[in-house]
């Protein structure tokens, strides 16, 4: 490995692109939201507002799917490190939810924007998020169909928080369009 700046005092200097800074800023906001959310009491494990997804939606809308993937996965990894959940079952559930909802968002990003706003993307992400989590829980943590007993509650919370988060994301995009100008 050759250090890029041998003539400097420091051995390794990582070049930071504007893309990196932007993604880091958004990821920081998402991480802060997921840490704040962890302090909220939850009636049932798994029922959470998922406020960090607001940031992912805003990023998807204004900077595209690739950036949304970065922000979402950074949020899952760094958020779990901060909460002491890294590589614990909760981390894998969060990862499964994030990956399935990112897959859904890849499709949602292709929907015509004239007809479908962030709320549709948010709903799709919320439902696939619980879908991915339930699937992993069924395959790995609770190998019994009993986990699906909770599915209606999770689906109901996905409906509520999917709409609410989507509306908040839509509002943010409407009020600050210049902050999220699409560079592409």
């Amino acid at each position: 490995m050759t250090a890029s700046t041998t003539d400097h005092e420091r051995a390794i200097e990582l070049p930071v692109t504007p893309d990196d800074r932007r993604i880091a800023r958004y990821a920081a906001a998402a991480i802060a939201l997921s840490v704040a959310e962890a302090a909220l009491p939850s009636p049932l494990p798994g029922v959470k507002p998922g406020l960090a997804n607001i940031v992912v939606l805003v990023v998807l809308w204004s900077h595209g799917w690739r950036d949304a993937v970065w922000v979402s996965l950074l949020r899952v990894v760094a958020g779990s490190l901060l909460l002491g959940q890294f590589l614990a079952p909760g981390f894998f559930l969060a990862l499964a939810g994030a990956l399935t909802s990112l897959a859904a968002l890849a499709g949602a990003a292709r929907l015509p924007r004239r007809w479908f706003g962030p709320v549709t993307a948010s709903l799709l992400a919320a439902f696939t998020h619980i879908g991915g989590q339930l699937l992993l829980a069924r395959l790995w943590l609770v190998p019994h169909d009993g986990v699906f007993y909770l599915a209606p509650l999770f689906a109901a919370s996905a409906l509520v928080f999917g709409i609410v988060n989507g509306l908040i994301a839509a509002r943010l995009l409407q009020e600050h369009p210049h902050d999220h100008a699409n560079p592409a």
Partner: peptide, 20 residues
């Protein structure tokens, strides 16, 4: 902030919840 497709998506999601 809701576009026409959003209403449809919300309705479909509510239906999924109702059926589940």
């Amino acid at each position: 902030l809701l576009r026409p497709g959003d209403w449809a998506a919300a309705l479909a999601a509510a239906l999924v919840v109702g059926v589940s």
